[in-house]
Structures are given as structure tokens and as C-alpha cells.
Write a protein that binds this DNA or RNA. Structure first.
Lengths: 235, 235
DNA sequence: TGTACATCAGTGAACGCGCGTTCACTGATGTAC
DNA sequence: TGTACATCAGTGAACGCGCGTTCACTGATGTAC
């Protein structure tokens, strides 16, 4: 009853669970968050809608699982891109993270909306958020990028902040991972997050494509400006 | 048959149209974009759903009208805030515009989602966009802010752009209003847009409130940084 | 090896919901003589 | 001033849709003797 290979039945169960998610993600990609409907998934899988209830107790449970998967795949990608550059090149790490963020969003606009946008119609997000682990990885990642820049930065431009100004969980996370970092750096990390989010959200929601032919170029310029304003300049 | 005062019947018609919109906006504010449903509006007004069809041919027409109203009210607010400062204080004008943008979004998060976020379930946006006039006013406003900064800015940091890199309508608009401005300034204006959009979108979608107690302060710092990076420093 | 039984994935029908939209109609408001 | 008529805002019932969810069931898969 320990960690053996799954029985045939367990394996089929896992396969079906994976297929449900896969189909749900296809619907998400082709029709947006609202297209994720149990009946639609069942139809696509040539199953009865009721049968899905032995895999997920509720539609919202499925959506929570999908949100987690999506968020995780996003953070996996940004972390991998960042880690392709050594710690000695903090600017490259920041740019890589930011570029990966945008690329993921452009590849998965519906996923981006699922994670950062309007909740699915009628969906109630569970307490603690839909994907707490991925969210805190993203948070730690951003803070790490800022932490690498912090000693290089012109501190005079930053205001004073207190740990109380932030969510206790966030404060604890940062203090544990970056003991030397002052609270003002957290404020800066949130601003960096916002700065990356802006153009990417506009593009994911289709507001940018109608204005410029090359959103990637715009975004790259913005990232470089961001790195510069953080005092980062590799080599 | 020219521009006389409306007859009693015309007046009632106008009043009812206004009430439909008002109720729709209440539903929008309390339940998000998806809560805008003809049946819900009719219920709220103690009317039959069918009766609404003599005011709007279709649900989508109503939503288009609402989006236009919302977008217009947003631009009205940002323009008014900007114009409270003289042309000689371009930084103050930029900050005022940006602050007004955020304030409107915080006051009307559902409206913000309607304008910039996911379309309402099943809504097909009309060609040319749901609110072309408001959109081009917003565009002109942002470009104007950048135009005021352009001569002061460190141009070396900017890349080369061509008018062809942008939507023809956008290019024409800018060339008409700001004949001296190069295309690179348009790219900068779009980046400024993105930068304002980032933190505000995060806040409107509830991602920031859970992280910091004072999103306004964060945003103010970001705006000041933005003004500085544009070379704006009043007085 | 063969038979009886247990498990359990999936069926099919149903419930109740809210939605957008249509349409023949009623009845009050306003107009013409 | 009074009557006949036209306008037209709103009614109420219906249509068809897709949704989430429940539940008694079937029938194949796997297990025990």
C-alpha cells in the first residue's frame, strides 16, 4: 500500500483525469475561460456530463486545478529562462524572466486571463487563492530579481516602507528568503510586477495588437528601461 | 420637426433608456460584466424582458452603449484632471492624468473590466471597437502627455520607428494632432500606457489588494518614476 | 482452470435554472375632427 | 367639449438553448475461492 506502480484501473483513472484537463485547456484556448464547461468537456470526450463527477466533485474544483496547472507552467517557464543566465548577470536574468513572461502570455492568452483576469462566470475562488504555491513562487522570483539589483540601485529614490505595509504572508516569505532586504524592496518588486504586467495584459486582451505591429519590440524596450532604472547593467 | 423640446412620449422614452443603462451599470458594479443580462435588468425594473427590445435591438447593442459610456466617463475624468494644471507643468499634468486613471478604476472596477478586460460572455465586439471615440481621445491624451515631454527627453535612449509600425488610424491621428512628433514618440506613448495600465489592472482585478495595504502609494511612486524617466521635472 | 462475486467507470434521464429572443395582444396615451 | 381613431409602451407566454448537478442503473473489469 506504499508507493508501488499504479494498478491498471488507477492508471486509466489518471489517464482520464489528464484527458479531462487537456480537453478543458483546449476549450480554454479556443473559447476563453467561459468555455470551460463540464458539459462541453463531456461532449468533446464523448462522455456523459455526470461521469465527470467521479473525477472532480465540482466544476469549480476543476477550474481551480486548471488555474494551478496554468500558473505553474508559467512560473516554470520564467524560472527556467531566468536560470539560463548566471547570477553574475542580473540584468540578463531580469530580461529573460520578463521575456518568458510575455511569451507565455502570448502563447496562452486564455491561460493568462484565467490566472490574472476575470474569474470564470460563477467561479468562486477558494480561500487562499486558486494557486497559492505558484503564486508564491512567482512572488519569490520577482523579489529575487529585485534583490539582485538592490545593492546596485540608487537607494535615495526609494521611500521608506514598513513590513506592516504588506500582507503578512508576503512579508514572511521575503524575510525568510532574503533576510537582508528592507521592506522598500518589496514595494519595488510589486512595482516591477506591475510594469511587466501592463503591456503584457494589454496584448493578451488584444488591445495592443490593433495599435502596433510589433508588441514584442515595445515590450523589450520597456524591459530594458526597467533594468536600467533598477541600476542593472551587465558586463 | 427640427430641434424642439421633446414631446412627453419622447421624454419618457429617454427616461426609460437612461434607467435601463443605470440599472445595467448597477448590475455591472455589483456582479461584474457577466451580470449584465436583459432579463436581470427587466426584473430590476419590474418590466418584461421583451419590452427592452424596443430600446435596444440586441443585448450586444446595450453592452456596446454601456462600454462607450464607461470609456467616455473615464476619459472625461482623466482629461479634466490633466487640464487642472497648466501646459507649463507637464509633469503635474502627467501625474494628474495617471492618478485620475487609477481613481476611476478603483471606483469602477467592473467598468474597468468592461473596457479593458474580458468581454462579457458571448459578446461580440462591433467592428471598429466598442467605443472608438473614447478610445481615440484616450490615445490622443496619452500622446499629448508624451509630446509635452518629448523635447525634454533623452532621445538617445529611443530607437528608430517608422509610421508603418503602427495602426494607420493611430498614425494618422497622431500626425494630425502632433505634426512635429516622430513615430518613436508613439512607441513611447504606448509604453506609457502599458506602464499606467499594469498596477491599475492588477489592483482592479484584486491581485494587489492582497499584497499591500496601500496600492495608491505604490502607484504614485511608479508615476513619479515614469515622469522622471520621461525627463519631466516641474518647477 | 472455472465460477461467483465485488468493484466501479460510465449511462441516460431528469431537475431546475437563467438566458436571449419573438410575437400576438392589451390598454393607456395622445391626436384629429 | 366630445367622440373616433392611431400610436405605441409594455405584457405574457412561449421557444430553444446550455448549464451544473443528482441518481438509479448497467455492464465490463478485476478478485477470491
Amino acid at each position: 500500500v506504499t508507493n508501488t506502480t499504479p494498478t491498471r484501473r488507477q492508471q486509466l483513472r489518471l489517464d482520464t483525469t489528464a484527458e479531462i484537463k487537456r480537453v478543458a485547456l483546449e476549450l480554454l484556448a479556443s473559447g476563453g475561460p467561459d468555455a470551460i464547461a463540464l458539459r462541453a468537456i463531456a461532449r468533446e470526450m464523448r462522455m456523459t456530463a455526470g461521469a465527470l463527477y467521479s473525477y472532480y466533485a465540482t466544476r469549480d474544483d476543476l477550474i481551480t486545478a486548471l488555474t494551478g496547472d496554468m500558473y505553474t507552467s508559467l512560473v516554470d517557464k520564467t524560472e527556467a529562462a531566468r536560470d539560463a543566465h548566471p547570477a553574475e548577470a542580473p540584468a540578463a536574468r531580469l530580461l529573460a524572466w520578463g521575456e518568458a513572461f510575455r511569451e507565455w502570455a502570448v502563447d496562452n492568452p486564455a491561460g493568462f486571463r484565467l490566472v490574472y483576469g476575470d474569474p470564470v462566470h460563477g467561479y468562486r475562488v477558494p480561500e487562499g487563492g486558486a494557486a497559492p504555491e505558484a503564486a508564491s513562487r512567482a512572488c519569490a522570483g520577482l523579489t529575487g530579481l529585485v534583490a539582485a539589483a538592490w545593492p546596485l540601485k540608487d537607494q535615495a529614490a526609494e521611500e521608506d516602507y514598513d513590513w506592516d505595509d504588506f500582507d503578512p504572508g508576503l512579508a514572511a516569505l521575503v524575510q525568510a528568503k532574503f533576510p537582508d532586504l528592507p521592506p522598500a524592496a518589496v514595494a519595488l518588486a510589486l512595482r516591477v510586477w506591475g510594469r511587466m504586467h501592463g503591456l503584457v495584459a494589454l496584448e493578451a486582451y488584444g488591445h495592443l495588437r490593433s495599435q502596433t505591429k510589433d508588441p514584442a519590440r515595445l515590450y523589450r524596450a520597456e524591459l530594458r528601461d526597467l533594468a536600467r532604472s533598477l541600476g542593472l547593467r551587465d558586463r
